[in-house]
Design a protein around this nucleic acid. Structure first.
Length: 497
DNA sequence: TCTGGGGTCCTAGGACCC
DNA sequence: TCTGGGGTCCTAGGACCC
């Protein structure tokens, strides 16, 4: 806890929805919901207009449609959001070398380390200037929290929403937090909140009065102790610029539960390959393969296997995932499958030196197992790990960085169709709601909807007046998908990440 | 038409070692 | 052949966050 409020937390306001409104003049001031449009989609972000109808993040899309039938429903365009996020992060980088992104729309900044603020007045000035810069560069609003710790800065930005700035003066945190619900403390979710409530602990003051021992008894060592410290306003966690990834995973929820064992196996293998593509794209390999299965009744289980050494070989991961699937009973149907890799190592197969080292270590471990070797023997089924990685080295050499690019475009929020798409479905998929298009005659626009062989386009762009709607056949040769346009006049934005 | 996708951190039990 | 404590690794599950 520092004496001056020089830790800044930025949170963009209703980020995905606001980006869509900035991009589409006809949606400004109207309820907009961004999320998965399939039968099992959920809300990623609702605009403030949509929130007035009770729509919020993580709500099933079907429920949102009942609450706000007249809202605009759009699929997320992650490449677009990533490009805007990049601009925002660039602005943060001008304030300090210590910028810790938490997601596309959120970050901590250590203003003191950047030398741009040393007291309340200079911190507030930096925060206000940042908000003006973000608006000028992206056309979007963000809320800023300033405080002497990360936790308080985050609480402050929450209080500041939307489009505001709140500074918590060091020394005032106890009286500010005291009467508030424990739920304002980051990390206290519905389950912990309910657990505490049953113990008679509702406010932050209640937490302090309960004492550390009682909290540890209720919540366990780490959680209890950290909640107690947070309630006192004690939080010394530093802003950390570069955090290493710990795992990479992909998962799909299917529009309809999968029953056919062969189909399930095929999907697991496809997921394994996508996962490896992402793994390689991030320049990693990993040791532990995790299979995730969500059954028809929403019960979720995971099975994992740790190899002797890290791999980024698609075949090794695919086969491990397939072995793990053999351990799972899928009777009754499966709604979600996922494949992940953890225990990441900082190199890929192309890094031959590191690879040779890992193999030497693997051999040592193997020998060691018979003698004085230490700690846990090789996991079941891992015997293939070492050898197959060698086979993969040749195949891996060519793929490299490009592999990750495939993951860029995949919109996470949509569910996967249960059957191969028909030609019409494929054409309609090209015209995903909300995506930008260009027509040879009418110019720039975006897809308002598609179905029964037709696509409806609204012709407008970020800097134009609200435009009008026209409908075309899905295979109209004059119509083609296009890149997002800059949100601000003369802005360099928009291009895919 | 109930409930996405990508992460992080923690706990708890068992194996194994010293 | 009875007790024991500490530490690491692995697996499975759960809470939480955006």
């Amino acid at each position: 806890m520092r004496a001056a409020p020089t830790i800044l937390h930025l949170d963009m306001d209703a980020f995905f929805a606001a980006a869509e409104q900035a991009s589409k003049p006809s949606l400004r001031g109207k309820p907009v919901v961004v999320g998965g449009l399939g039968p099992r989609g959920v809300v990623a972000t609702a605009s403030y207009e949509a929130r007035r109808f009770g729509v919020h993040s993580a709500m099933p899309m079907a429920q949102a449609r009942r609450l706000a039938p007249n809202a605009a429903y759009l699929v997320p365009r992650f490449a677009f959001y990533r490009a805007i996020s990049g601009q925002v992060m660039e602005l943060l980088g001008r304030l300090s070398p210590l910028v810790e992104p938490l997601s596309l729309d959120e970050a901590f900044v250590d203003l003191e380390a950047g030398g741009v603020a040393e007291d309340s007045a200079s911190a507030r000035a930096a925060g206000e200037q940042l908000r003006r810069d973000i608006l000028a560069v992206t056309g979007l609003t963000g809320s800023v929290g300033l405080a002497g710790s990360k936790m308080l800065a985050k609480i402050a930005s929450e209080e500041a929403k939307p489009d505001g700035l709140v500074l918590i003066e060091p020394g005032t945190e106890r009286e500010l937090l005291g009467p508030r619900s424990v739920r304002i403390i980051p990390g206290i979710g519905p389950a912990t909140g309910e657990h505490l409530r049953r113990a008679g602990i509702v406010t932050v003051t209640d937490v302090v009065e309960a004492g550390e021992d009682e909290l540890v008894r209720l919540l366990g060592r780490a959680h209890g102790a950290s909640l107690y410290r947070m309630a006192l306003g004690h939080d010394d966690r530093p802003v950390v610029a570069e955090r290493d990834a710990k795992s990479v995973s992909v998962e799909d929820t299917f529009d309809v539960d999968l029953h056919d064992r062969l189909r399930i196996r095929l999907e697991v293998e496809r997921l394994a390959e996508r996962c490896v593509a992402r793994l390689r794209g991030s320049g990693h390999s990993g040791r532990t393969i995790v299979l995730k299965v969500r059954r028809y009744d929403f019960s979720t289980l995971t099975r994992s296997e740790t190899l002797r050494g890290p791999t980024d070989d698609p075949m090794v991961v695919r086969e491990a995932a397939a072995r793990l699937l053999e351990l799972v009973d899928t009777t009754g149907g499966v709604r979600l499958l996922g494949v992940g890799v953890s225990g990441l190592a900082d190199y890929t197969q192309e890094d031959l030196f590191a690879q040779a080292e890992a193999e030497a270590e693997a051999r040592e471990a193997e020998l060691g197992d018979e003698g004085e070797g230490r700690g846990g023997g090789p996991a079941a089924g891992s015997s293939a790990g070492g050898e197959e990685r060698v086979a993969g080295a040749g195949a891996g050499a060519g793929a490299g960085a490009g592999a990750g690019a495939g993951a860029e475009g995949d919109a996470g929020a949509g569910a996967v169709p249960a059957a191969p798409p028909t030609a019409t479905e494929t054409a309609e998929r090209r015209w995903a709601a909300g995506h930008d298009v260009r027509h040879a005659v009418y110019g720039a626009g975006w897809v308002q909807g598609s179905g029964v062989g037709r696509v409806t386009v609204r012709f407008e762009e970020p800097t134009s007046a609200p435009g009008r709607v026209r409908t075309f056949p899905v295979d109209d040769p004059d119509l083609e998908p296009s890149e997002p346009l800059p949100l601000v006049p003369g802005g360099a934005t928009g291009a895919a990440a």
